[in-house]
């Protein structure tokens, strides 16, 4: 691949009725490391993130224009199958979403339906994914037990394992620690730092210390516009950041 960027976003505009959620965003997300979206609530961070795997279009009443390229191919082109695209792009939500089934069934939920692995390799895949999500030692003796009995921090790591089992090309995380306590947050942050060597991660956060701990590069959004982007230290020191986080300015 000659193009080093993972996502190329050009003129991306999202409106809900007449209300603009994103206004002509142009951004390149590089193919390595952790890239963070920061900004105040309602700035359009999650909207931008969900436009990267076309999950946004499942929300009725939104109009999406502009272009997004993933690995140099446009994802909003008519020939693209959005389901196949989503299968290649893993996603972690703010609240862990656990299916009311066993831990094992949860880990294998995606990979089983997508049919990307032969049946006999599924168990190994589950173990691998749970190890990658640092959950294996805690659950290996109760894989058949209900996933709903796990703590919320464990549930979030189970969700991570579930998406890792599908071997995605990139991970999108939408404020993955905002529902968690400090210890679980630290566990997820450690995982982000560890996983970034294997696959790029795009992270939405409103927690600036977290952004500075985890992200190599940041994009600052404010009221649906991309204010600036660049190396983390640069963005966190910029006067624009202070302005943007003052409630009156947005």
């Amino acid at each position: 691949m000659t193009d080093p960027s993972l996502f190329q976003i050009r003129g991306l505009t999202v409106t809900s009725g007449v209300l603009p959620l994103l206004q002509s965003v142009n951004l390149d997300i590089p193919a390595g490391g952790v890239f963070g979206f920061i900004g105040p609530s309602g700035a359009g961070k999650s909207t931008l993130l969900k436009s990267l795997n076309r999950l946004l279009e499942l929300t009725p009443g939104l109009s999406i224009t502009g272009e997004v390229k993933f690995k140099a191919s446009p994802i909003y082109a008519p020939a693209v199958d959005p389901n196949a695209l989503r299968a290649r792009i893993g996603m972690l939500f703010q609240q862990p979403v656990i299916f009311p089934a066993s831990i094992l069934a949860n880990v294998l939920f995606g990979v089983k339906r997508l049919g990307i692995l032969p049946r006999r390799e599924l168990h190994d895949a589950a173990e691998r994914a749970l190890r990658e999500a640092a959950l294996w030692d805690e659950v290996k003796d109760r894989l058949k037990g209900s996933a709903l009995n796990l703590s919320i921090g464990q549930q979030q790591r189970l969700c991570l394992a579930r998406t890792l089992a599908c071997q995605p090309d990139v991970l999108l995380m939408d404020e993955p620690t905002s529902a968690l306590d400090n210890r679980s947050t630290a566990a997820i942050e450690d995982l982000v730092l560890e996983l970034q060597s294997r696959q790029p991660i795009v992270l939405v956060t409103h927690n600036l210390p977290q952004a500075s701990r985890l992200c190599g590069r940041l994009a600052l959004l404010c009221a649906g516009r991309l204010v600036m982007f660049g190396p983390t230290a640069e963005v966190l020191d910029a006067p624009a950041l202070e302005q943007c986080l003052t409630p009156s300015s947005c």
């Binding site: 795997n53 999950l55 499942l58 389901n83 196949a84 695209l85 989503r86 299968a87 290649r88 996603m91 939500f93 979403v97 299916f99 939920f109 995606g110 339906r113 997508l114 969700c159 579930r162 998406t163 599908c166």
Partner: peptide
Amino acid sequence: LAARALGL
């Protein structure tokens, strides 16, 4: 939504 995000 979680199922759709997994590619179902």
